Simulated assay, not measured.
Amino acid sequence: MDFEGLLSSRWSCRAYRDEQVAPELLEEIFAVAQRTASWCNTQPWQVLLTRGAATKRFAESLTAHVQANPPSPDLEMPAEYRGIYQERRRGAGFALYGALGIGRKDAEAKEAQMLKNYSFFGAPHVAVITTDRLQGTYGAIDCGAYVTNILTAARERGVATIPQAAIAVYSGHVREYFDLPDDRLVVCAISLGYADEADPVNGFRTERASVADAVQVLE
């Protein structure tokens, strides 16, 4: 598949089969992503990658924490969604709940679906991405580019993914659980594995704005 095909066909997987990705395949994915361009070649990203029982232990701990504690992000979360950003956010949510047959007023079902973020949707692996505190905003931007390359490299190899800011919302617990040093900030996580194609949650796709909506050409 060419580059355009990889980007066009990649989606955020929200249901996984109980099947590990081979260690050598994971190594390939992260080796490709390591070529990501970064500010002054700082390469500020560091990764904690779980597999098997380690993933399940982390999921259980994080889910329990989320149900009993307020958010504690390292990075500032969006203050508000307005205008087109709110429209896109709602559109993605409606598509998700529609695929699952969850009604707009079914708060209990929405809550249950939300909590699946913290069990990584059943993925066998989760990669927690951290940046160096002193690299500031540009360190986080570099990590965003790194995450994109992980997603694309995984797609090329038939591995499904979903980038998850939801994990970073509870950075305090992530930091404590993994005993992260103070100079590391939690940016996001990526769940990885093989998609459960039979699950209806994997049947919907989000839309993208046109180039004209995003790019202004000046002459």
Score class of each variant (00 low, 15 high):
L151Y: 04
P163L: 11
I141N: 01
D132S: 05
C188G: 07
Q164A: 11
Y146A: 04
Y85G: 08
Y118K: 10
V174I: 10
E87P: 07
D142V: 08
L115M: 14
D179I: 15
Y138A: 13
I129A: 00
L180H: 14
S119C: 14
R104K: 13
N117M: 07
I102E: 07
T161W: 06
A99F: 02
A140P: 03
A127F: 01
G103T: 07
I129F: 01
G101T: 11
D142H: 13
G93C: 02
V147Y: 02
K116E: 03
V186C: 05
G93E: 10
G122Y: 10
E111W: 13
I150G: 06
E111F: 12
V174W: 02
N117Y: 07
K116Q: 12
T137L: 15
P181D: 13
V128C: 05
T161S: 11
I167N: 00
G101D: 10
A92I: 07
Q164I: 06
G144M: 02
I129D: 00
R175E: 02
R90S: 01
Q113D: 12
Y85K: 08
L185K: 12
F178T: 08
V159Q: 09
H173L: 09
N149I: 02
I129C: 00
A109I: 11
Y118F: 15
R90T: 03
E111C: 10
R155F: 06
I190Y: 00
R155V: 05
I141R: 01
N117P: 15
V186L: 08
H173S: 09
Y146T: 06
L96I: 04
G144P: 00
Y194V: 15
D132P: 02
Y138T: 14
R155P: 07
Q135G: 00
I190V: 15
E108M: 11
Q135Y: 13
M114R: 14
V159T: 06
Y194E: 11
Y146L: 10
I141W: 05
L100A: 08
L185H: 14
T152E: 03
A154T: 09
I167Y: 00
G101N: 11
G136P: 09
P163W: 08
N117S: 05
L134T: 11
V186G: 04
